[in-house]
């Protein structure tokens, strides 16, 4: 029940933010839309809604956003270099990366972050292993590339979503 309420409040806030007006008609429409969304998708929402009320997580989220943006900008210069170079220095392949975190939401966010960082796209998660397509496989050792692909983000994601 709690998760339905949490999802309802978040959806309503999102509606108010996206329409940005506080007239009565707008609020009634928002309540109707949020109610329908909650009834349809409430059962897929996160289980422990108490996590939303811990301010520590938001502080880590703020720090994480800056780290992530920096990595993202680096990724873009990396990709631009590979695309514009006449010889195209690419060496693609799919590698196996060991995951250190457990919950589904945290894994989803880790996969999304990996997709936006230099030369990697998450392909699939099977058990504790994530398969990652890498545009330049720079090493053969699983330890090294696990650290290279996911090590930068794992500690932040763990603090925010676990």
């Amino acid at each position: 029940m709690k998760r339905y309420l949490a999802l309802f409040i978040i959806t309503l806030l999102f509606w108010l933010l996206i329409t940005l007006s506080l007239s009565l008609a707008n609020i009634i429409t928002g309540i109707a839309a949020a109610g329908v969304t909650t009834l349809l998708f409430g059962r897929y929402f996160v289980r422990k809604v108490g996590k939303f009320l811990e301010p520590r997580r938001y502080a880590w989220l703020l720090a994480y956003i800056f780290v992530f943006l920096w990595e993202c900008i680096k990724a873009n210069f990396d990709v631009a270099y590979r695309v514009l170079h006449p010889a195209m220095p690419i060496k693609p392949g799919i590698v196996r990366v060991q995951l250190g975190i457990q919950s589904d939401l945290a894994r989803t966010m880790l996969a999304n972050s990996i997709t936006m960082t230099p030369g990697t796209i998450a392909v699939d998660v099977v058990g504790d292993v994530m398969y990652v397509h890498w545009i330049y496989v720079s090493s053969e050792d699983p330890e090294v590339y696990s650290r290279k692909v996911s090590g930068r983000f794992e500690k932040y994601i763990e603090k925010i979503f676990e």
Binding site: V79, V83, G119
Partner: peptide, 16 residues
């Protein structure tokens, strides 16, 4: 346009 297969195209295009 330039990269050789669908996976690399997706790499370049989605990020940039």
């Amino acid at each position: 346009i330039r990269l050789p297969d669908v996976y690399n195209r997706l790499q370049s295009a989605t990020k940039t």
